[in-house]
């Protein structure tokens, strides 16, 4: 069993480390204790802005701050960060290409007991459709830390998502994060497993299960969903001939869509998508929900078998 760490704890640590940078301003909408922006607030209250339960205003204020040269981090839960203020993000962040980092926690069905109202399963789709927007979904706590540092260096709008619960550590502390780069974690020749967020660790488990059957699966961590690392995706599929995508998000508009769009245009091959099947979630423990909504390593392995069978 690998070590389990919550990504949001490492987002908080990264913000704390960034507090020495005077251009950084952090906003939150009454959820600082949950999103861990409270870590920044503790060391730098003068550049922490509480907006109250008013997410649309949070984005509007972010636009003004960014226009004045601030590097803005605005955080809340994924449902509110992308759904409640999508049009504010469109007008005030994406269109004028301002330096605003919208970092959302509590994404995906692993939010668990709070139920569907709080489980963001459409956020990648919403953000990916905006021009100028970069969309990140790091796989674990260490990658979240590195990605936070990377987006603080990048000048432009970014959406970054993560879950609530601790997730298995699959990367090394201090590993470099490059926006737009997908990483091949395991090489294989029969099927490409493209995962994002905590589903990457499920892909690794699925690859292990498949290996026992003599199937060689390649595992790729797609932590940047937009811009998609076209070269890495196409190079992998050209070797394996088929693909599975796995995300804690609707199969509509997220990683599955992004990979399918690319493969259908450039290298038509069988693709199977793992994600929530155009439906809302519900209350339950994360583990129970993963089983009920078909997001386990076993589901990924089964999708891989189907994809391989469909190869000509």
């Amino acid at each position: 069993m690998s070590q389990m760490l919550a990504q949001r704890d490492y987002y908080g640590k990264a913000l704390r480390a960034l507090a020495s940078r005077e251009d950084i301003v952090v906003l939150d909408a009454d959820l600082a204790g949950s999103t861990k922006t409270s870590e920044f607030q503790k060391v730098c209250p003068e550049r922490f802005v509480e907006v109250g339960i008013a997410e649309q205003n949070m984005i509007g204020v972010s636009s003004g701050l960014a226009a004045e040269g601030k590097t803005v981090f605005a955080s809340t839960f994924g449902v509110f960060a992308t759904g409640r203020c999508w049009e504010q993000i469109r007008l005030g962040a994406a269109y004028p290409k301002l330096n605003i980092k919208i970092v959302a926690t509590h994404c995906g069905i692993s939010v668990g007991e709070d139920g569907a109202t709080h489980q963001a399963l459409e956020d990648i789709s919403l953000m990916r459709s905006l021009p100028n927007m970069t969309v990140l979904s790091p796989a674990d706590a260490y990658e979240t830390y590195a990605a936070t540092m990377a987006i603080a260096e990048y000048d432009g709008p970014v959406y970054m998502r993560m879950g609530r619960s601790p997730v298995p550590v699959i990367s090394k502390e201090g590993e470099k994060f490059t926006i737009g780069e997908a990483k091949v974690l395991l090489e294989g020749k029969d099927v490409s497993l493209f995962g994002t967020g905590q589903m990457v660790s499920n892909c690794i488990e699925a690859a292990e299960e498949l290996r026992k059957e003599g199937v060689s699966a390649e595992v790729i961590n797609v932590s940047t969903i937009k811009p998609l690392d076209r070269e890495t995706v196409l190079a992998s599929v050209s070797r394996t001939g088929c693909a599975v995508t796995a995300e804690e998000h609707s199969i509509i508009g997220g990683l599955g869509s992004a990979v399918s769009e690319l493969i259908s245009e450039e290298l038509p091959s069988p693709v199977q998508r793992i994600g929530t099947m155009d439906m809302f979630g519900e209350s339950g423990s994360p583990a129970e929900l993963f089983v009920k909504y078909g997001l386990t390593s076993g589901d990924i392995a089964e999708a891989a078998r189907r994809a391989i069978k469909r190869k000509r």
Partner: peptide, 13 residues
């Protein structure tokens, strides 16, 4: 939306 944006400009100042 402009008033929120103006608040951001004013806060930065």
């Amino acid at each position: 939306q402009g008033l929120s944006m103006a608040c951001g400009f004013a806060l930065a100042a």
